[in-house]
Nucleic acid binder design. Structure first.
Lengths: 103, 103
DNA sequence: CAAATTGTTTACATTTAATGAAACTTTTTG
DNA sequence: CAAAAAGTTTCATTAAATGTAAACAATTTG
């Protein structure tokens, strides 16, 4: 596998490895985690990288790169991949410390 | 302003325009909406595009492009901008129709 | 209304994401 | 273990994101 940080996150966010108690993964958006979420979703679908690649319309090598957080993925790519995985992507923006001027 | 679709979304997702009842915006991730979320957050902070640009480290023209959904933003940029806006970005992946093979 | 501020668009350069092909590595299977 | 399958990495190319500056346009203000 890869780094420990990812595994920690996975355990915490997705439940124990191997179990499918949840079908919804939520976390703070981080570049390093998006690839992992792709991989997790792909494995849940029991697809190989090549199969997912076929669904998305790219080669398996590209899927590998996306999963391994090479570079800096674009939103378009995120959406394409999760659409192929029949997953819905939600985003949530939380404003911190309400410094809003009350005019 | 821009298109009606965005306004509809805003009304539905963020509450009536002008009111700040919510400080959290959540929606299905769409390329066309991310720019709007940036703009909404920026305005909530009472910042001009130039000021936000300074915080992020880019020119105001770039902020404009991001808000107007020119192109296809990268996750890195998404994170940079919302960090400057002191906002937390959460992402949520929801697996649809559980086609998971039960091995 | 005129000036100032704010936001948009364009032109051009630079960087980088996306991608395929093929070699290479790792894992799985029989 | 050997073959097959799955995954990773390298090399090269293309397209697009990003950056800056400057010209424009729109909005706000006095």
């Amino acid at each position: 596998m890869k780094t420990y940080t990812l595994d920690q996150a996975k355990d915490e966010l997705i439940g124990l490895a191997g179990s499918f108690e949840r079908d919804q993964y939520e976390t703070e958006l981080q570049l390093e985690l998006i690839g992992d979420m792709i991989q997790k979703a792909r494995k849940q679908r029991k697809l190989t990288q090549e199969e997912l690649g076929d669904l998305v319309g790219v080669k398996k090598s590209q899927i590998s790169r996306l999963e391994n957080n090479t570079g800096n993925i674009t939103l378009d790519t995120v959406l394409k991949v999760f659409k192929a995985l029949e997953a819905k992507v939600n985003i949530n923006i939380e404003m911190l410390n309400k410094k809003v001027e009350v005019v």
